[in-house]
Amino acid sequence: MYQHYARPGQDADDEEPGHAVAILSVQGSSPGVHIVDVNTDYQRLWGGSREDWLGAAPIIVQQEAANRQIIDQLHDALNPLLNDAKSFFEGIGGLEVNRRHDGSRRYVEWRITAMGGRHNNSITLVLTQRNVTEQMEKEAQLERLATTDMLTGLVNRSQFDAVLKSEVSRQHRYARPLSLIMLDLDFFKQINDSHGHDVGDQVLVALAGLLKRNLRKADCCARWGGEEFMLLAPETSLEQAVRLAEKIRGAIKHTDFPIQGSVTASFGVVEVHSQESVKSVMKRVDNALYLAKEKGRDRVSTGGLLTPAKQA
């Protein structure tokens, strides 16, 4: 009997399989599920010819172990119908993510339903597998557009709001340290006025890249608006957040930005208090940033709760 667990097939002309269909049979007196017929797209998806597949066990998903589990799940779901013709099989389904030959992902949505009821102690099933890669990629792209700042590629303000609320709630439940950093480029209006908004945009893009390189995977970095950025640092105390802000401040100061050259930034840093509201946290970090600006810019301020190290 034909068994084929290689990567999903594809025609020589690179035509992707569309809607694969296999007709299956389950005999009440013998274990296993066997193929009665397959269409061309099923052959494209998994390789082999129609003759190869007749009488063989179906491939529902690419991974052999997962495929066996689904077959076992199918038998469990069919047992009532095999024992009682009046029972009803609602079907099972899922989404398989597998790899094309070039390493890219392919999403295949599958479902198994019954074709009528039990007949002569056997059940005929229909397995359908639909390539939904384009749909999934479009949905992912829409999600990226909805959550990402188009200029810098960082998280946008609305998405950051959602992440902040979630992390503050987690801090309330588990009492783990959580800090928030707000930074603002100093005299950014002068950059736009002197060199134009295109250069200003280049500076913002370069700054976004610098921030990504200096943050951990667990940190969330967002463009808050204009030249303002937010950094959310889970599992980070106020002292640790100040050190992180100082590290970034120094990196910004000693980076040669496009055309403009030297740029500085001011920072406000706060740690979320126990049971503190998001509104209160935002107000405190904004006040801390304001103090950094008032004290001469190119510095880190905690709003007076912690004295930062001497500026360099």
Rank of each mutant, 00 (worst) to 15 (best):
R68E: 13
N156E: 07
R173V: 10
D186R: 04
I60F: 08
N39R: 04
L204E: 04
V97A: 07
I92S: 06
E137L: 12
M150Q: 15
P8K: 01
C221L: 08
G153Q: 00
A6D: 14
V21F: 13
R111K: 15
S179V: 03
L289T: 03
K217T: 14
R249D: 02
E143P: 04
T147D: 02
R173T: 05
W53S: 06
A146V: 08
L142R: 06
Q62S: 13
D13V: 01
M136L: 05
V270T: 09
F89M: 01
L232I: 01
L151Q: 02
D102Y: 09
S49H: 11
W224P: 01
G225D: 05
V199D: 05
R111W: 14
V285M: 08
R284M: 10
T124P: 00
D186S: 05
P58A: 11
V155P: 00
R176F: 12
H195I: 03
P177K: 01
S49L: 04
L127A: 08
D219H: 05
A251R: 13
V168H: 06
L82G: 06
Q10L: 13
P8Y: 03
V36H: 06
S266W: 03
G296L: 09
H4A: 14
N120Q: 14
L305N: 12
A114P: 00
D286T: 10
R99P: 09
E96F: 07
F257P: 00
A218W: 05
F257L: 01
A288N: 02
I23E: 11
L185N: 03
F187P: 01
L207Q: 07
E235C: 04
E227G: 06
D41G: 07
G268E: 01
S25W: 07
Q43H: 02
G303F: 05
V272M: 05
F229N: 02
H197N: 11
L211T: 00
S25F: 08
N120A: 13
A22K: 02
S266P: 00
N83Q: 12
N67R: 08
K279T: 13
A85P: 03
H119M: 14
G200L: 10
R299S: 06
H75N: 11
I252C: 07
G91Y: 05
L185E: 04
G18K: 14
L210F: 00
T264R: 12
E90K: 10
I92Q: 04
G303I: 01
N79R: 12
D201E: 13
G250S: 14
N192G: 02
D186L: 10
H75D: 15
K293N: 09
R118G: 07
M230I: 07
S49W: 09
